[in-house]
Amino acid sequence: MNPVDLYMLAGIAITLIALYAALTRAHLFWKVLAINLMGTGIFLILLAAPSRRTPEIADPLPQAMVLTGIVVAVAATALALGIALRVIARSDLPFLPDGDEDDPDSPGSTGEASR
């Protein structure tokens, strides 16, 4: 097995493990971290892609994509952590409540009145 294939397989493995974690972990911090890791796995796949095709020449396109992807990931992580902190501040729990929180009698369900 050559190293590039190893990168590719590792990328796929990281992506899938992180996807699993993002779906199953309940703690918001773990979810955000898992989503971050999932992006990293995909970046690894992208970086391994061109060298498989033309081993001698570097392909600038995936590198540009990964660079852009990192910027997007930083912004997304920052926003997700920001909202997660606000969830914790309002419900005292770092988890999302189970199912659809469809209780019309709970305070604040009238989005308009409390805007």
């Binding site: 989503i35 909202i83 419900s91 999302l96 709970s106 989005g111 805007r115």
Partner: peptide, 24 residues
Amino acid sequence: TLAVSRQATVAGMRYLLVSLIGSL
């Protein structure tokens, strides 16, 4: 999440997570 209610914050968080996983 511009709406301040707890429900809206939770809904916004869930929306963001679904949205990020979908994009990835």
